[in-house]
Design a protein around this nucleic acid. Structure first.
Length: 434
RNA sequence: GGUGAGGUGGGUGAGUGGCUUAAACCACCGGUUUGCUAAACCGGCGUACGGGGAAACCCGUACCGCGGGUUCGAAUCCCGCCCUCACCGCCA
């Protein structure tokens, strides 16, 4: 949620930024409407506060009048009764202003919830993924695996690494069961990613996999992305679509000390996504599933340092891909392809030689104050004034597509070789048939 | 799931309808004193929104788990919910 001050004081920048996202006219209008309503809100609050102050003063008088009346002062008793009537009049006025005030406040926050984050100045305008900018292409020479290169779903079957039928039987499509060395490799990748993150100074946390409504609202999954989450109705809990949700919300309504920044957290969790409306090659094999494993990195940063921290996170993710020996490229997302809450997002894609296509494996974003404003995550600046932090997060990394690319890249006549960095975590260096 | 006790500022904790403008202590910050450190003493010490001001700051309103209600007036009384603790039941 954007801050109202920004909508008012930097209106032109906000409008220009939102246009890069290609938002509709209604959203652009919401910017001005919110500012106008906020002026109305201030007027109403002044009225309300003044009236309440009157009531408070009269009530105090009544208190002392009653004291005198008890001592036998009949005159005071009469005065007290008169004062009561005066309060009743004020209360009638107040309740009218108060409900109007509430109404205006509710309208303002409705409008604010509908306005997406303003893109960073470096974000290119664009409608969708075709307009994303290749920021860095490390895959100079794409691997040639010859005619025999198989996609990971064939390898998975051949080497018995995962079983989609079992998952379909147990739950439904998109819930794979990992088996044997496939399960072991999955586990090893999780350990490897966590180990790299903690060595880079991130504190490991294992959060709950279900969250309440306030938490889902904090990081922006509610109200606009409700349909993407699984909902446990009986308890009104949501299955997390990413560890970002519980991990960032740990600091909801917290004022941290400036010296504690940046706060760096990492966590492994399964992620649950309903992802309605996909089909075809997109959902084949491990390309897109409803439940998958991911290691997430999260930072709460000083506003002046957040873009420096973002670079550090890119380096972190890049390091993982280099160590795994996977060809990758980095995209700077255009306005139309960026998430609702993000100011700047870089996507990492690895090359899948068996499918001859790029697969997204990480998304690293700076949300600036968009999330922290909703969550009220603040630090005290030099003057002791609470100030919103910047929040950032990134996948480091999402497992299924890494698994897919890894298997496809390392297939040989003798079996699937394991990258050297993973061997301490797997305990084996090659996967052979049976 | 049952029964009981609770939820007050950063922490401990007093307050059962108006002398509360939420006491006191601890922690923290500033000052005085002082070979140094410490102690002692004095002062300050929450959040949000609004009004005034160039600013320091001043003023108003709201906030004692959350939401309603009673009352001229609620941390205090009433109702609902959430959470914590203890014991019982169930259980990996």
């Amino acid at each position: 949620m954007l801050e109202l001050d920004i909508l008012r004081d930097k209106r032109e920048e906000v409008i220009a930024g939102l246009k890069k996202r290609g938002v509709g006219k209604d959203i652009l209008e919401a910017v001005d409407t919110a500012v106008v309503l906020d002026e109305k809100r201030k007027t109403l609050q002044k009225q309300m506060d003044d009236q309440l102050a009157q009531i408070n003063n009269i009530s105090k008088e009544i208190g002392s009048l009653f004291g005198r009346a008890k001592a036998g002062d009949e005159d005071a008793r009469e005065k007290a009764e008169e004062a009561k009537k005066k309060v009743a009049d004020f209360k009638a006025l107040v309740s009218k202003v108060e409900s109007e005030h509430q109404e205006v406040k509710a309208k303002i926050s409705e409008l604010l919830y509908d306005i997406p984050n303003v893109p960073h100045h470096s974000v290119p305008a664009g409608a969708g993924e075709d307009d994303n900018e290749v920021y860095q292409d490390a895959a100079k020479a794409l691997p040639e695996l010859g005619e025999g290169a198989k996609p990971h779903w064939e390898l998975g079957e051949e080497y018995k690494l995962f079983n989609f039928e079992w998952g379909t039987k147990l739950t439904g499509s998109g819930f794979p069961v990992y088996t044997g060395k496939g399960a072991a490799l999955e586990r090893a990748l999780i350990s490897f990613f966590l180990s790299e993150a903690t060595m880079a100074g991130y504190l490991e946390v294992m959060p709950p996999l279900m969250v309440n409504e306030d938490t889902a609202r904090g990081t922006g999954q509610l109200p606009d992305k409700e349909a993407q989450m699984y909902h446990v109705e009986k308890d009104n809990f949501y299955l997390i679509p990413t560890a970002e949700v519980p991990i960032t919300n740990i600091y909801r309504d917290v004022i941290v000390t400036e010296e504690d920044l940046p706060i760096k957290l990492t966590g492994y969790t399964p992620c649950f996504r309903r992802e309605a409306g996909s089909y075809g090659a997109d959902v084949k094999g491990l390309n897109r599933v409803h439940q998958f494993d991911k290691v997430e990195i999260v930072q709460l940063s000083h506003p002046e340092e957040s873009y420096e921290q973002l670079k550090g996170m890119l380096k972190q993710v890049e390091g993982l891909l280099i160590k795994l020996g996977l060809p990758y490229r980095i995209l700077r997302l255009c306005g139309g392809d960026m998430g609702f809450t993000s100011a700047l997002t870089f996507d990492f894609e690895v090359y899948s030689p068996g499918q001859k296509r790029w697969l997204e494996v990480s998304s690293v974003s700076n949300f600036e104050t968009f999330q922290s404003n909703r969550m009220k995550i603040r630090y005290k600046n030099g003057k002791g004034k609470p100030t919103l932090v910047h929040t950032l997060n990134g996948s480091a990394l999402a497992l299924p597509r890494i698994m897919a690319a890894l298997l496809e890249m390392n297939q040989t006549e003798n079996g699937i070789t394991i990258p050297e960095v993973l061997v301490p975590f797997t305990g084996f260096d090659i996967i052979r048939k049976n």
